[in-house]
Design a protein around this nucleic acid. Structure first.
Lengths: 285, 285
DNA sequence: CAGAATAATTTGTAAAATTTATCAAACAAA
DNA sequence: TTTGTTTGATAAATTTTACAAATTATTCTG
């Protein structure tokens, strides 16, 4: 994603804020830790104040850093706006896009709508399916761009686009049984696999009481008290709540969504992919 | 004026827009013409569109360039805001500042007020006087920072801060006489000198009917029909109008204002100078 | 107190921006 | 037209800057 001016520094700064460490941030922006260290040093020199408090292991923002964070985000946002406004205003063509169903329902409608508005002559074909099916189709050339859920541990290419906590959730007033009743998606589902693996590691007994391929179906079953489920924190609807920590259920790694692009992507698809990445970036704030 | 990110490109872009040529712009941003040429080339490549129309001698903005200009200005503005918000929020000290009276009256009140708001503990001493007196005092160490009018031709250091056309002006309904009646400031005034020199070159006969050291005094005399005067285009008040081109009066070079800083400036004064330059930059838009 | 994790620093190298020096096109005056 | 001047583009050389790799210093954890 080529930008006009040195967004690099700002991106690094934001990455550090989000990860809490220079090292991790370095990975996400594809640079070394020392590079970020120098970038921030320069930034701080120019501003004449410290941006981070390094007394603790995890760095945190100073009050000045907080202020600057707001500006950094606005600056990046502004650049993106200028950029996307000028770049190829009337491309046309076709894009084959695959995405998990739940993600499509929750976060994508606005993103896709605004893309459509900027590029009305592009034909966008969206396919909702389970991550593993999407990856399969992607490798068979069925898609130009896909969003996939993935395990933060085993990074397998693509650019990270979204990350949020994954939690156990149950209907309000639901009473946990010793042998857990689970409401999950059917087989090749990443959350399902993660949940079951975690339970097995913790030696908890369980059974699956209900399966549905759609998020809406799963939620309906949970609300009806058929069991507990696993959800990204932001997708919890009314009538359902995360299960309290006191009731020890095995911890789940964060949910992470990444975007993958076909090699030799068409220009339209390239623009589309950038649009998705950047728009989600902005939603987060 | 150190900035965080590559404002350089944006500044160059804006300078080209304002001067209309790469060469002149290069001077104002202290780079070579080829540097700007490459900067803009890169910018255009990244944006995927032409910013300037080079078919004519003076380059002009393309429609896309117009759009980008707006963003460029906003981006610089935003950076400046972040910068000035964080940099030394509560410096203190004293600043001795000199400025021409007319400029102080018209453009500076807001600028000085906002500086005061950001840095309430700074004592600001403003002196209004004629440019030549200011320069004299500056060299004798009387001022830290001064604004001066100067002839665009004979550049004598300092950074350009303002430029606008200089015009002949008369009261509405005033009838020009063959021998011109002039209302001007007293002796060491730059506009006065420029006006008289221009008239002499054009072999026009004239006499000075009224002199006043303050802009308000001059305007009052002009409004009263005591003669014509010379004014920066934006300072023309109600009841007075620029004299039409048809009535051939000698052409006057643009009015230009520059800011000069003492060597070894204190930090407060440095910040003040930057503030003035940047704020005037923003007023212009 | 030992060991793991983390940021700062140092140093050599690679990449990028800038200048210098031409060049080609557009304009103005003859 | 022709000629001289102004202007932007381009190529090569140079300077500046950013970066990675390795090392050091610090802080948290058990």
């Amino acid at each position: 994603m080529p930008f006009i001016i040195d967004t690099v520094q700002l991106k690094s700064f934001i990455a550090i804020v989000e990860t809490g460490t220079f090292g991790q941030a370095a990975e996400t922006v594809n640079r070394t830790q020392s590079a970020l260290s120098l970038q921030i040093k320069k930034l701080e020199e120019q501003l004449g104040c410290e941006l981070f408090d390094r007394t603790n292991r995890r760095v945190t923002l100073t009050p000045q850093g907080e202020i600057f964070l707001g500006y950094a985000k606005r600056m990046i946002q502004l650049q993106w706006e200028a950029f996307s406004r000028l770049r190829e205003p009337d491309v046309e063509g076709e894009i084959r896009f695959g995405t998990p169903e739940d993600f499509a329902t929750h976060y994508l409608p606005d993103v896709l709508a605004s893309f459509r508005q900027h590029h009305p002559r592009v034909q966008l074909n969206v396919d909702c399916d389970l991550t593993l099916n999407l990856i399969d189709g992607f490798h068979r050339g069925k898609y130009d761009v896909i969003l996939v859920k993935r395990d933060p541990q085993q990074v397998k290419g693509g650019t990270k686009v979204w990350r949020e906590p994954l939690v156990w959730a149950a209907a309000d007033g639901y009473q946990l049984e010793p042998r857990l009743s689970l409401v999950l998606s059917p087989q090749p589902c990443i959350y399902r696999a993660r949940a079951l693996a975690a339970l097995d590691r913790a030696k908890r007994s369980w059974h699956i009481s209900y399966t549905s391929p759609s998020l809406a179906g799963t939620l309906a079953a949970v609300k009806a008290g058929l069991g507990i489920t696993v959800l990204p924190a932001h997708m919890i609807p009314a009538g359902v709540h995360p299960i309290r920590k006191e009731i020890k259920l095995p911890h789940l790694a964060d949910s992470e969504v990444a975007l993958m692009r076909k090699d030799e992507l068409s220009k339209v698809a390239e623009i589309f992919a950038d649009h998705v990445v950047q728009s989600l970036e902005n939603i987060k704030t």
